[in-house]
């Protein structure tokens, strides 16, 4: 990874991407969620403990846009779970630099509460997105997003993506 110039314009672009992503999920528009990724995009959810130990498996482990789209189809058409929604609260994105492949490496903290059908609001997850961003036709997309949860515990189930 090499250093890169972090301009205000770049930061605004990244912030807008992160916020649009959170809005998409929180507003229950997950059909649009795959559009945040590149064709070869990778998405996983893991925990800090697994990441520290160098363990590769994820709670969710999606390699490529097809698998990412399938997650949405499964949630909408196959899986059974009680209705719930999230509210993402995001920290400021921190630009680490540019990867050898030219992607922008960014870390952003997240805090997610889950609102369940019976009206309870609970802290569901906190953690950090470890992202690689790439411009596709001028727009920033995620070529990689690893959502690393601080806690090793998942309450009941992880349905909607983080």
């Amino acid at each position: 990874m090499k250093d890169m110039a972090v301009t205000s314009d770049l930061l605004v672009d990244i912030s807008q991407l992160q916020t649009r992503y959170a809005r998409c999920i929180d507003a229950d528009r997950i059909e649009e969620w795959p559009d945040f990724f590149t064709e070869d995009g990778f998405y996983s959810v893991t925990t800090a403990e697994n990441r520290r130990a160098g363990l590769e498996a994820g709670l969710i482990w999606l390699d490529g846009i097809g698998m990412i789209r399938d997650r949405v189809t499964a949630l909408r058409d196959a899986n059974i779970y009680e209705r719930h929604s999230y509210r993402h609260v995001l920290g400021q994105p921190y630009v680490l630099g540019e990867s050898d492949g030219g992607d922008i490496e960014v870390e952003t903290s997240f805090f997610v509460v889950r609102i369940t059908r019976d009206g309870e609001t609970d802290v569901f997850a906190s953690g950090c997105y470890h992202d690689a961003l790439r411009r596709v036709d001028g727009d920033l997309k995620l070529s990689k997003r690893i959502a690393v949860c601080d806690s090793s515990h998942i309450d009941t189930l992880l349905g909607l993506p983080l």
């Binding site: 959810v45 498996a57 482990w61 999606l62 899986n79 059974i80 992880l158």
Partner: peptide
């Protein structure tokens, strides 16, 4: 194995329910 682990666990396509 990593791909198929999407089937199981707290977020698994098969075990979520």
């Amino acid at each position: 194995r990593l791909k198929q682990s999407n089937l199981v666990g707290p977020a698994g396509y098969v075990s979520m329910e």
